[in-house]
Simulated scan of single mutants.
Amino acid sequence: MARLLKYILILLVLGALLAGGSVAALYWWFNQPRVTMQEADLFSPVLFEVPRGSNGRQLTEKLAAEGYIEHSLMNYVAARLFMNADHIRAGVYAVHPADSPRSIWHRVVNGQQHLFQMTFIEGSEFSQWRDQLATHDYLETVTEGLTDQDIVAMIDPDAPAQHPEGLFFPDTYRFTAGTTDLQLLRQAYGRMQQTLDELWAERQDGLPISAPYQALILASIVEKETGATHERGLVASVFVNRLHTGMRLQSDPTIIYGLGDDYRGVIYRSDINQYTPYNTYRINGLPPTPIAMPGYEAIRATLNPEQSDYFYFVSSNDGQHIFSRTLEEHNRAVYQYQRNQ
């Protein structure tokens, strides 16, 4: 009975519009923005959720109740006249200040959901990624309670390592509400494999690494050692030179990663002397896994380092480094830029 009354009411409204020659006026009203473009600058878009199973009439009432449209019935009639008002898609949509009723309807009818975004920065660690993923309101967490190794196995049972560090590409990822954290990780894993495959195919000859995964390990160290893009090729050359001569890498970020929660904010002599599988002051060659998520530039620099005869570098306290060929030169640079501060 209620449905019958609804359609009778719609027919009456349509009849009145047609009788009065007001279809054009209704179309004009349906396309008018809620506020002017000047006023729109004063407001931010808001998010509007369309639940599963909603129909056009329910959507109209919800939009009106939350203040996004006026004249619920007239809006529904216009939507029935000018678009498929009952063909709507569930999801979370952005409603912009300058939207017209038609633009809101168009978005929902066509499933043009709001795209959220999450940025994973270069040099971040997988534990930080998991924290980010777990705290996003519109991302569904399905990995809660799983170990890092469980997650890697679910994404790729044939991954080069079950330790997740370094396997995911740091970037900005966009997604709609209801996307799972595992889906986002799969996307980042695929991006890293694709990037690594492309850069590995273009690598220099004669590098002291024999597999793409080793490139990830070394690139993660380069990533953590410098944030200056123009320096990465030189930093990589230092480590390549050391590996070629059998010299230990002696990278401070590897000490920090190996200490984990025991890191005290400063590297002490006892930390340098403490053995961990990642302490490159104590082990020969590369650590067993990457220590962070390297970005494109760090991987590229690692696989195509600059040609140099540098074996040392020290921070110049401005985000860059002083490079040295000999230990004597290095010690002078350390005295000038570190001990003399």
Rank of each mutant, 00 (worst) to 15 (best):
L42E: 11
R102S: 13
E49W: 03
E66V: 09
E61L: 06
V92D: 02
V77N: 12
H87P: 04
R89N: 12
F30Y: 12
V23W: 15
H106S: 14
A94H: 13
L63C: 05
W29S: 07
N31I: 02
S72V: 02
H87F: 09
N75D: 14
G56P: 13
L12E: 14
A25H: 10
V35P: 03
V46K: 01
S100D: 04
P45E: 12
E70Q: 07
R89E: 11
F48D: 00
S72Y: 02
A85K: 07
G67A: 10
N84I: 14
G67E: 10
Y27K: 08
N31S: 10
W28S: 05
Q32C: 07
E66D: 11
R52V: 05
L18D: 14
L59I: 07
L14A: 08
A40L: 06
E61V: 04
Y76L: 11
R89W: 12
A64K: 08
L59R: 06
S22L: 15
L73E: 04
Q58C: 03
A16W: 09
Q38H: 15
F30I: 04
F48E: 00
G20Y: 15
E66K: 08
I69H: 00
G21P: 04
I104E: 06
A98T: 00
A16V: 08
H106Q: 14
F82D: 00
R89Y: 14
F82P: 02
A64R: 07
S100F: 02
V13F: 12
I69D: 00
V13C: 09
V92C: 02
A98G: 03
P101T: 04
Q32F: 06
R34K: 02
M37R: 11
R57D: 14
N31A: 09
F30D: 05
N110I: 15
G67I: 07
G53M: 10
D41C: 09
E49P: 02
N75K: 11
L81D: 05
A85E: 05
S100H: 03
P97N: 06
V13K: 08
A65W: 12
L17H: 01
L47T: 05
R102T: 07
H96P: 02
L63Y: 02
A65Y: 13
A25R: 10
V50P: 05
K62Y: 03
R80V: 14
I88C: 00
A24P: 09
L81V: 11
Y76R: 08
I104F: 11
L81F: 12
F30W: 10
H71D: 07
L73V: 07
L63E: 01
A79Y: 13
H106Y: 13
A19Q: 01
V108M: 01
F30Q: 04
V108N: 00
W105C: 04
S72R: 01
N84M: 15
T60Q: 08
P101V: 02
Y27C: 03
